[in-house]
């Protein structure tokens, strides 16, 4: 059920990317897709009644192994979040430049104004 809802979130992002005419809306769609994929990776690594993969001095090692959630997707998703931020910054700066050049965010208008 969680996976299906997460997939639905991804589809909302895809819908925004393919149907909207406004550049900012398209960037927002990309951001939503990125959220959905990050969440999906974390959902895969979740263990029922799990604990965060942080060891404390009072914790038993065997119990920690039995209960801790998967640390590998977490480490990779941190990387992915930061890269997503880089993509967003680059996309927004390109959008700002396009606005200064053409005076609009509407991709149809931009197509018409070419040449």
């Amino acid at each position: 059920m969680e996976f299906i809802l997460c997939f639905f979130l991804l589809m909302v992002g895809l819908y925004a990317v393919v149907t909207k005419r406004n550049l900012v809306k398209i960037i927002i769609g990309l951001a939503i897709m990125e959220y959905a994929i990050n969440l999906f990776l974390i959902l895969i690594g979740y263990r029922k009644d799990g604990i965060a993969p942080i060891m404390t001095s009072t914790m038993d090692r065997v119990e920690f192994l039995r209960k801790a959630v998967d640390p590998l997707p977490q480490a990779l998703v941190i990387t992915s979040i930061v890269i997503g931020f880089g993509i967003l910054a680059l996309a927004v700066s390109i959008a700002i430049r396009i606005y200064e050049r053409f005076g609009t965010f509407d991709i149809n208008e931009i197509k018409k104004l070419k040449g």
């Binding site: 799990g50 998703v77 931020f85 967003l88 509407d106």
Partner: peptide, 30 residues
């Protein structure tokens, strides 16, 4: 809730920065 506190912190920082950038892109425009 999914027991990933490191990611929650990173996500919050990145989210604030992304919001600032996006608002900068939309203010006084279109």
């Amino acid at each position: 809730y999914l027991k990933a506190p490191d990611i929650a912190i990173t996500q919050m920082v990145v989210e604030v920065l992304a919001l600032i950038i996006l608002i900068r892109a939309t203010l006084h425009r279109d």
